[in-house]
Design a protein around this nucleic acid. Structure first.
Lengths: 209, 209, 209, 209
DNA sequence: CATGAATGAGATTTCATTCAT
DNA sequence: CATGAATGAAATCTCATTCAT
């Protein structure tokens, strides 16, 4: 049962979210180093000092954002993967969910990309230990469904790790287009492409949407 | 006949390359903003001032590195794509070349990733106009081969742009593993996976390595 | 009625003035390039960073000072020139005002000199566009009074531009002594010399203080 | 009888002069601090190192230039002042000489100004002790002629120091115009103005050119 | 909890000067 | 004497963080 929050507590929570929203906007657009605390403060319409009441330092603010981002994404598609239906249907659902989520949350998606595609190469920042762990968990969930599909004779016999990675890479590449130029395509179209390509490469029986 | 360089000129050229090597090492590991000129100078065993004799400023040094990186990659696989053989063989050759190059040039590969996967989302840095143009050119070369393969009845009828993007995304995801943990796999193995997956999804006739 | 400033605003204004005072002291003594921001900060008893909260950069700080300096001077003697009385009286008043002002504001006077006498030769610095415009305006006001005096038969027929320039040069040379060694003379004495010399050279009727 | 210089010695002397000429050009245009040794070297078509064979350091080079400048000027007008004729004629000759010299040597004149008008306010540079001494000597020579003129009943009874200073200030102000925009007037015209104004203010008998 | 002025460490960049060739 | 690459001290400027109100 959720604890009832006092007005003060609710207000505090709202302020916190406003700060996170401002930070997301700027970090996703300009990256960690090229975003200043002063800019975030101005965007959030608070004083700099206030940011420090909510977050220990700039890193903590950033980390928080990443965690929020990744956990939200992870949750959504873990649900999709664990849903009912055949492995094919679940993977299809997962792809659809991901595309829809990306389309609805562009800045968040940008953060997701810089964290999963870009920054994994430069772990020195130490801003993402947990986030990467989460992403690994998500990958393993995907892997599990693929493994199960292989066992059930739906997919070709192949290393499910490789298949998961490949699906991720492929779908992300297509979704990146969406993030870059949101008006050029729809998430549904992209999901369709991704599903067709992926299933053609892994299904034993021809796939028909 | 190559112009003979004087000893002094050769030495200067060597120093230039030492600086670039030091910068590549640090930039690829820590990124642009978290690498200082002092660090580069120390790594290159020169004084800070010396770096500025070779490169106008930090940005120029970075840009130089990116251009060198991307152009080298682009050239290698453009050659592979334009080689003899069927479209299938040429794509296969392209994948092999890319994997081999990544394996041989890890830091360069890291730079490649941060430029093609990560930084496209934050163009504000303005460090990569030309580099992105190069990458676009490379993508279009890949696209052209795919289109020709479709016309020749080797590949399924589909948007070659989508196919190119998807191949890039997929193979990069697999190659990222190589960059992250070089000892966990070989480039040949990865190339094999990428080829099998890609050809299974696009070839009309079953593909056999 | 002047807007009431909050205590904070008043304090900020005071700090701004303290910084300007420190900068004036050092710039007037050592010039633009031989004064460092660190010195100014120390003199003003602030941290370097603080200077940048008030002024965009070193140039802005300097420019501000010049403008303040020149505008103050210009205003004072424009008033003197536009006062009541014959042209002779007004010029006399102008000379007195200038001498008094120089005596009272030595550092400012030094700035005035380096801006009007010295720096006009090296406009490359680009720190003084507006300041020079102001000085030109002041010169033209002087010129106008001289022209009117000529028309009214008080002064010899001569190019008023030349007369204005010559009066400026002469009086500044005498005043420079005051700036160099403030104890060697009084502003009144200098003003007396300047008036006698100038009026003897331009008045048709003999001048008697 | 001047010692015959060997070819080597003559060459060295020529190089020295080339360096001084280059430095004069740049210093007079941009000032001491905004001129770099590299620029001077390039202008002189020598390597930086070579400059240091001829001059201990940047300051020495500058000082040398000033001394050369001021001594040349001083010499020319000391000659004029010590020439034959009445005091009036000698002062007239002095003004003519100065104007002619300024017109012929613009960069040198610019140096002269920054040293006599501008920099006297900021002696901290310590670049001009000797130069100022020279200028003082020149002023005293002028003063002597004026004093003699007063004694001989040609000029009004006044402090010759003041008269000398005032003549200098007035004529320099007019000559500055020549330096700023060489095409707007001729040295003769300016000399004429200066003489008329000065003699009107100090001669007991009306002056007629 | 909110503010925002002040801080100062740290980054980039310049340039006079040296020195090995 | 000539060269010019290399040096590194010193200057400018930024920005995360603190703290008194």
């Amino acid at each position: 049962m959720a604890a009832k929050l006092s007005r003060k507590e609710r207000e505090r929570e709202r302020h916190r979210r406003e700060i996170l929203a401002a930070a997301l906007k700027l970090f996703s657009r300009n990256g960690f180093e090229r975003t200043t605390m002063a800019e975030i403060a101005e965007q959030a319409e608070f004083a700099v000092g206030t940011l420090y009441k909510f977050f220990k330092d700039k890193k903590a603010l950033y980390r928080n954002l990443i965690l929020q981002t990744v956990s939200e994404f992870e949750q959504a598609w873990t649900v999709a993967l664990k849903g009912p239906g055949t492995e094919i249907e679940r993977i299809a659902h997962y792809i659809d969910t991901k595309a829809a989520l990306f389309a609805k949350r562009l800045p968040t998606a940008r953060m997701y990309f810089t964290q999963t595609s870009g920054a994994f190469l430069q772990p020195a920042a130490g801003l993402d230990r947990e986030a990467r762990a989460m992403y690994q968990r998500a990958l393993r969930a995907l892997e599990a469904v693929l493994r199960s599909g292989i066992r059930n004779g739906l997919f070709v016999k192949a290393d499910p790790k490789i298949l998961a990675l490949s699906l991720e890479g492929m779908s992300n590449a297509l979704l990146a287009k969406l993030v870059e130029r949101p008006d050029s395509t729809t998430p549904e179209e992209i999901a369709e492409h991704a599903k067709r390509l992926f299933f053609r490469s892994v299904c034993l029986e021809p796939y028909a949407a």
